[in-house]
Design a protein around this nucleic acid. Structure first.
Lengths: 261, 261
DNA sequence: CAGTGGTCTAGACCACACT
DNA sequence: GTGTGGTCTAGACCACTGC
């Protein structure tokens, strides 16, 4: 194919000469954007196969190598998963292997499987109006409808994590305490299947804090027990914030693990 | 070139048929290993350029594309840095841009530059014998010589981080409190220039704790103040542990930031 | 200008999964 | 066997750096 011609189609119009950058972007970046569109639009849903590299190359009128590089980057971002001989799949939080990808707390004896799955208890799930703080985190306006969920996770019967979640009201219309309680599996998997919201990345701010009275009761600790406060904002495609989560972690039997590189 | 012939040279001997895996590894992985050797052996030092892709391709008798893929992975691991038009460089902790790559604590008002560099105070630097715990972390034997360093980092005059470091004795022979105090820049940069030790990755275990009396004094906090305990093991090439570091972070004006993806 | 990394292509062949 | 992703090659051209 003629590369120059095709990239002219894909490039932003050269007429906006006012742009500070010439806005050149390589073909594979543009292909990446097109595949991303397919993911956002729901053309390919979590867990499904996307078309083969050859098909995509034909559709976008580029070489297979260019599609390959685009998919490589998307796989690197954990948006796609490649499986040799089978195809390329849309990543999902519902797989047993990568379950709890965003939960970094683990038992002190590195044995992740020994303690089994967490026991979950939904304390509360109510509809309310966003405070200024919640609105800012979720890119809403103060007063917009939000859902608040409070739950406790226990390991081996010991309450270990107390979480408060805030979710934007409209995408999560229909979410109830019962729905959460009945679902077995990661909450982010439920969000995918029932609300079409896939969490792609997250930002955490961590501090050491002391619990208030309510928190003491729910986590069964005394008021002087130091806890980790983990404030997380999770994003879908397009860097849209879709969840604010405040976690309180007991770190007497568990620790937060971070790999730096 | 004849690919099969060349990879036969690079592959591990096919005679060890007892290996559970056929031990097949792609050419670019083997090239990656060869470049890694050059880095470990000190053939190319931090901050220096490595030979161009074309030169390496000629040296290893493979195509430029194969060298490219090897370098791509090493750059992804932050072992190399590519600079278009200039060449490929060995990564270093001495660059202003990526300084403190492993320090995730930052001021609550996201302004990383406003507070300027940390004030450092070396409290102690002494030679002693490894406890069982330190020995395990550093892959030494209990009783082996180690160096222990204690220091405090302050931001805007507020003592914020108290760190204890343990380093294996032999690679760091000659490290003194004066050397540390006189050096301006990241400690890991000093390790590179003066001891030929480059830290490549690290593992952190984080907890919330309360300080003991000594820690209270050094950080100027009361005994009930919750602090973050950050236990880090840092590794050089070949996954060799070279540092155990226990940090105590005040999180009243700062927080630990973690990006999940 | 020459040299470097960055992109794109086309084609061959290998490894793996399913049927 | 057929189709998928994975590897390797060779060659062309682009973008950036510094002489």
């Amino acid at each position: 194919m003629n590369h120059t011609a095709s990239s002219a189609e894909l490039h932003s119009s050269p007429s906006d000469a006012l742009a500070p950058t010439p806005a050149f972007s390589p073909l594979y970046q543009q292909i990446k954007g097109l595949i991303l569109q397919g993911l956002q639009s729901g053309e390919w849903k979590p867990g499904e196969v996307i078309p083969s590299e050859i098909e995509l190359a034909a559709r976008f009128r580029v070489s297979q190598g260019t599609v390959r590089k685009a998919i490589d980057e998307l796989a690197g971002d954990h948006l796609l998963v490649r499986r040799q001989g089978k195809g390329t799949f849309v990543a999902t939080h519902a797989e047993h292997h990568v379950q709890y990808r965003f939960l970094k707390l683990q038992p002190d004896n590195g044995d992740l499987n020994s303690e089994g799955p967490a026991q979950r208890e939904i304390i509360d799930c109510k509809r309310l109006r966003a405070t200024a703080e919640v609105a800012r985190a979720l890119a809403l306006r103060a007063g917009d409808a939000v859902l608040q969920v409070r739950r406790v996770l226990s390991f081996s019967g010991i309450p270990t994590i107390l979480e408060d979640l805030w979710l934007p009201g409209s995408p999560f219309k229909g979410l109830t305490a019962d729905l959460l309680a009945d679902y077995h599996g990661p909450m982010y998997a439920l969000f995918e299947t029932d609300f079409g919201v896939r969490m792609v990345r997250a930002d955490e701010k961590i501090r050491a804090v002391l619990p208030d009275e309510t928190q003491c009761r729910l986590l069964q600790v005394t008021s002087g027990t130091p806890l980790m406060s983990v404030e997380r904002v999770a994003f879908t495609y397009n860097d849209t914030p879709m969840e604010l989560r405040r976690g309180l972690y007991r770190t007497d039997t568990h620790h937060y693990r971070n790999k730096l590189s």
